[in-house]
Design a protein around this nucleic acid. Sequence first.
DNA 1: TAGTACATTAACTAAATGGTTAAACTCAAT
DNA 2: ATTGAGTTTAACCATTTAGTTAATGTACTA
Lengths: 201, 201
Amino acid sequence: MNDDKNTEEKILNAARQVFIEKGFDGTRMQEIADTAGMNKALLHYYFRSKEKLFMKIFEITFKQFVPKMSGIFSSDTSFMDKIQLFISSYIDLLDKNPYIPLFIIRELSRNPNVIKELIFDKFEIIYNAIDLNVKAEIQAGRIRDIDTKHLILNTVSMCIFPFVGKPLLKHLFKTNDDEYRTILIERKNVVFEVIKKWISI
Amino acid sequence: MNDDKNTEEKILNAARQVFIEKGFDGTRMQEIADTAGMNKALLHYYFRSKEKLFMKIFEITFKQFVPKMSGIFSSDTSFMDKIQLFISSYIDLLDKNPYIPLFIIRELSRNPNVIKELIFDKFEIIYNAIDLNVKAEIQAGRIRDIDTKHLILNTVSMCIFPFVGKPLLKHLFKTNDDEYRTILIERKNVVFEVIKKWISI
DNA sequence: TAGTACATTAACTAAATGGTTAAACTCAAT
DNA sequence: ATTGAGTTTAACCATTTAGTTAATGTACTA
């Protein structure tokens, strides 16, 4: 019997919440059931096993995060604008979902095979789109001769790591949650400035 | 009965290995015992509980990583040299211990309280040392007016994240382990270049 | 050599955990 | 009302896991 949402959706929501916070190893099926407000057996009725339920969650979460960046680089604004837009919207996305990067990294590190069962063919499209842009800009003499890989590494590192490293960095800076969040939002400008200065002629 | 190392040391070595790879939740006391080549009861004989053994490991690992950076900023070379030295030696350190950042982040995220029981008073010293350097350079007009927090965030992000995000980024770049490691080593120059361009007048 | 303090082990316990089952419930179609 | 298919639950099961215990081994000393 359903309240407003159907049972499957309630399970997925609860599972996402618990898995993202505690990781696969730290998650108990009972806790998911409690969070969803139902009997533990229902989880198995709908998803057979913890592993299967987890994979569903991981897949959904992963697909939610990766492709968000792909679209930007096919629009027709200037390269610099694309970069600025990417940084700004990605930090916004992280601000709304601060625990997802660590979740993905943690679980990918626990079991690197999961990525093979996922859409990592999309990766090629994304990388090629960016690489094409970069090469064209270099050719046209609008930016310095940089390596696309390092451009990506630098940009995503500076965007993501402050979220992932928060528990440590918060202490280093002696900030509370609000102050730290302010810094994170400031980074929309800072990261773009850093990248711009680096690639500009 | 000891072979060459004493038992306590063998336990600590095995525990470090397993905890760092699998995290607290993913670690079984039996696996540590197997790795150390001894009976599981010995772990409890020497360290009482999984929690206590874990804290020992975390403390050792944490202390091994944080203070390495503090010394550099009290030497008397130029500011730019200090930054370059920091980046270079930190990436070397990460290259030798690539799993430690994720370990620290993962466990700090699982239980943020552990940091309070640790030396995070050292943090203040480190931060102040860097901040003093930065302010002096700005005052002297040798670098632009930048925020110390963002300097730290940018630098450590670009150094650490490529190690933490390896399982994902390796696929994005379609590289094998050797190729990816080459990129990581290249970053000693890249990261310095990026920071230098950013802070130079 | 007997005693003793510490080290090590095999066997065990209690609790937790993922998963199963059989019965009960709900509701729409007959 | 009855049926029947899908849903939900309480109780249960087998295994795993952190932690304990009691007995055995070891090495040093008086």
